[in-house]
């Protein structure tokens, strides 16, 4: 009996570890996009995007003043949706 119990506890632990790894991967991808649109397109890579014009200025200006904010919104909602699905896959959701 107790052997079975510790086995299921171990399986649970393994599944929780996998869940956490999957979560970290999603966070990583999201943060790369987060940095790319703000620090990247908005600031550091702006000179490279200067050829693409948007309403009297260039794409980098748009990313710095509006584009990055819109991408941030998409990222947060994507993360919430993806994590709620991950919770169901791993059975880690709240009851």
């Amino acid at each position: 009996m107790s052997d079975q119990k510790s086995q299921s506890a171990q399986a649970q632990k393994k599944s929780d570890t996998d869940y956490w790894k999957a979560n970290l991967r999603i966070i990583m991808i999201s943060l790369v996009i987060w940095a790319l649109v703000s620090f990247g397109f908005g600031i550091l890579l702006r000179p490279m995007l200067s050829g693409i014009s948007v309403g009297g200025t260039d794409l980098g200006f748009w990313f710095a003043q509006q584009g990055s904010i819109l991408v941030f919104l998409v990222l947060i909602f994507f993360y919430a949706w993806r994590m709620n699905r991950l919770d169901r896959e791993f059975g880690t959701e709240e009851e």
Partner: peptide, 24 residues
């Protein structure tokens, strides 16, 4: 002008960190 876009990106981008790294 453009140089102060920092406020726009900074005060919204923090919510991504909050949502992904802390709140839940």
């Amino acid at each position: 002008g453009y140089d102060n876009s920092t406020y726009l990106m900074g005060w919204t981008g923090g919510y991504v960190l909050l949502a992904l790294l802390l709140a839940p």
